[in-house]
Design a protein around this nucleic acid. Structure first.
Lengths: 250, 250
DNA sequence: GCTTGTGAAACGTTTCACAGCC
DNA sequence: GGCTGTGAAACGTTTCACAAGC
């Protein structure tokens, strides 16, 4: 993230609204919610309905969609399929993007084996590991290659997005090599900071960080309630429609 | 979280500064950076050094730390070990928190097998799956139990934080059950919205969402380089840290 | 009627810049 | 001299509230 937002006053292509980062981060949720609504047979959805399905407020949703040159109809709502198309287009998902995965250990193996990406715009099209014993193994029919082959494969497949799932100590070297091969977006699962040129976007996912944030909130909740642990059930709005609390994403 | 932060009447326990959410989200990074510095033999670090190690600006770091009733010394910097202690305390990491994991499929299996949490304040202390064929399997020495046993185990181990790594269609039911057992923080890897009572915190990690956000930036970068440069200031408003490789393929 | 689209206000976060202290 | 701590300004995001339109 954190690309320079070059000065452009709206010079971006006809296609290209200059979206606030917070909006960009929510579009994928809207997309998921829209697909769910489409599957449930809705062909139109109000901002209220869509917002509920996506876990945001309707005002926020409308404001977000307004940046895409909105196409809702007043008094009615948004056409579900049309909106799916528009968001997929804005996110650049129409071309199923090939993604490289480096590090086929515990986590990497699981990511490579997960089948759910195809429907969401991606496919892993190259797997790499530094461990010769893993090379040649097939995951979901795809062979694991040695990291030494990174450059030719990434060039051949025209890959620009890569996932790093190596141990932390290897991540920076891998990132350097990926960048040298032309990769410009990296999703980093290694618990370390990556230093990359400023035209490269990096997003980081760290499970321990997420748990630590939850831990803070636990800690706070515990310190707010007088009793450490009520024995009986205090008041549980469990079944039914508690308004969902949605924590902030990374 | 979007819930009313009940007018924080609590005089904030002696322990408890009322931190901005953005700050809370960064504390884990500071912690990681501090551990790295400690390991490298530093016992004091300036805000500049620490900020660099954590990937933020020094002003932001100082402001964040100031919420913790800062303990840096002017002209010198922050005492590394002391700061580690303080942040761990604020995050509630002193007690190694037990965490439950539900769903030992592809991803869940990888999470359970990852050994890196112990050093960061957590341990998985109960694994569950709905598939009888998985029950009894041991991962890292821990047995996989059937979800039917959720309630007694979670009560016995006093678990309040859980990770959901089930398929999306099962996630809500699992969440409901966890909440009924007293869990108040959930980390959700299933690509769906969870509806929970408002005293429960949910954080969501969705790999496809991360890739879609990167895809947007790819798309934007591509459309910017493809377009003729609009008239205006010369090229490349680059700035910042010249660190890193400066390679662009193609 | 009902729902979108949007200025304007409110809020939260980051950055600036420097006073205060070692 | 160097570095922290922090008000105040700048910026970004969310919420409000209502006019515009179906």
């Amino acid at each position: 993230m954190s690309q320079q937002r070059s000065a452009h006053g709206n010079a971006a292509g006809p296609d290209f609204p200059d979206l606030p980062e917070a909006t960009v981060a929510r579009l994928p949720e809207y997309l998921r919610a829209l697909h769910a609504l489409a599957e449930a047979g809705h062909d139109v959805a109000s901002s209220e309905a869509l917002a509920t399905a996506a876990g945001v407020t309707s005002a926020k949703l409308r404001k977000d969609l307004s940046y895409l040159r909105s196409n809702g109809t007043r008094g009615v709502g948004y056409e579900v399929l049309g909106l799916i198309d528009k968001i997929e287009h804005v996110l650049g998902l129409n071309q199923h993007r090939p993604v490289a995965l480096v590090g086929v250990g515990n986590l990497g193996h699981a990511l490579a084996g997960y089948g759910g990406f195809g429907s969401r715009g991606f496919r892993f099209s190259a797997l790499f590991d530094a461990d010769q014993r893993r090379v040649g193994e097939r995951i979901n029919g795809m062979p694991v290659r040695h990291v030494a082959d990174l450059a030719p494969v990434i060039a051949a497949e025209r890959i620009v997005i890569a996932v790093i799932a190596t141990p932390a100590h290897a991540a920076q070297a891998v990132a350097d090599e990926l960048v040298a091969c032309g990769v410009t977006s990296i999703l980093n699962f290694a618990p370390c900071l990556l230093s990359v040129p400023e035209n490269v976007d990096v997003r980081k996912v760290d499970l321990a960080v997420e748990l630590q944030i939850l831990s803070f909130h636990e800690h706070r909740k515990a310190s707010l309630t007088a009793l450490p642990r009520p024995l009986g059930p205090p008041a549980r709005p469990v079944a039914g429609h508690g308004l969902g609390v949605e924590a902030v994403g990374s």
